[in-house]
Design a binder for these strands. Structure first.
Lengths: 202, 202
DNA sequence: TGATTTGCTTGACACCATGTCAATTGACAC
DNA sequence: GTGTCAATTGACATGGTGTCAAGCAAATCA
């Protein structure tokens, strides 16, 4: 029976992913994940010492399956600064929904669980690096709005593209995903990109 | 002994406020609040049926003490749309730190507690109304950027001015409060305000 | 003065989720 | 057969919320 099944650890990660993704449930408990994986609650603890570590492992699992690195890396090939900014927003903005379920759970834990906070912060720092790179590409092209330092522009972009921001626009305001991405591009352009010399509408 | 002391309910609210404000503590428990108020844990339950209701009552208590209404209302006196936008951002942006402690606790509860979520959402809807009013003032003056509908502009402004956004810039990125307010004004202006006819730099 | 009410205290308890522990099972390997 | 590995079973500790019942002390009423 277990011969053809994927390895237990993977089944647990998959179960966690599925439950968190369709998170109509108020909260996904260890017992829920175990049941869904067809495994005892204690088996989960044999693979993951704490709930926080299971959630973190789940984010890595998702990254691997969804090829997060490839998708984010694509924005690095853009020719100009503004194009790179667009590409990055497109890539990350469309990746948020993929990790939103786990991210939500991890952010909720972060208020009480230090390990969860550190792990999530670490992942968000990776996003910040992407923002930073996009801002630097703008600066290299002389297209970074003069009112911001590179650091400030990075912080602003990073905050603009935060998961809670996505959550509000997408889920609270009911925006379709495509509108979210387009509006974020437009907003970032207006906020960060300097008008091209001899171009009335940047 | 209790003759000169404020009424017990108020003492509890005050204790909750103080503890949540200086929230170095990982989490503020009912027992902590009771101890700080110099009252038994059960006394707290005599005044507030649940933790969620205590937190919500605490936000109202803060509003009353800090005269939140007056501060927000001030932005309504601005003459032009853009001035009103600035005034609103100034008022709300400087009010966020006052309620951040309780807000944080309430947002944390929101993931599990429906009552907490509804109460916090309700308070945030009030902020959205302020955003809406500012956007409409812009539209009346013909200064709302043409690429946004009034609804979209409201949602964007509201998201820009969200508590998690403030938290990231102020606490994670370490921005001083004054910079937060100024940058939010500048960002909102660039994002939402149309250039005045015959004005190169809006 | 004695009875009642009011507002709080005390201490026990149910509930629920996380995480721990020890004993057991069942399959596969040698 | 004997060991070993992975997982099961069931009991338990912990920590926080919320409930309950009995008690108590000061103010109020008669």
């Amino acid at each position: 029976m277990s011969r053809t099944n994927p390895d237990t650890r993977t089944r647990i990660l998959q179960a966690a992913w599925e439950l968190l993704e369709s998170a109509e449930a108020p909260e996904t408990r260890m017992a829920d994940i175990a049941r869904r994986a067809g495994v005892s609650r204690q088996a989960v603890y044999l693979h993951f010492p704490t709930r926080a570590e299971l959630l973190i492992a789940t984010t890595h699992h998702i990254d691997a399956v969804k090829k997060a690195d490839d998708r984010l890396a694509a924005s690095r090939t853009a020719a100009t600064g503004p194009e790179r900014l667009d590409a990055f927003i497109e890539a990350w903005g469309n990746y948020i929904p993929e990790i939103y379920g786990v991210g939500r759970a991890l952010m909720a834990m972060s208020t009480t669980d230090e390990a969860a906070r550190l792990a999530w912060d670490d992942r968000m720092q990776a996003v910040r690096h992407g923002c930073r790179a996009a801002v630097e590409a703008l600066a290299r092209d002389g297209r970074l709005a003069t009112e911001h330092s590179a650091e400030e522009a990075t912080d602003l972009l990073w905050t603009l593209l935060s998961v809670p921001g996505w959550e509000r626009l997408r889920l609270v305001c009911g925006w379709p995903q495509a509108r979210y991405v387009e509006k974020m591009k437009a907003l970032a352009r207006r906020a960060l990109v300097a008008a091209q010399p001899g171009d009335g509408h940047p």
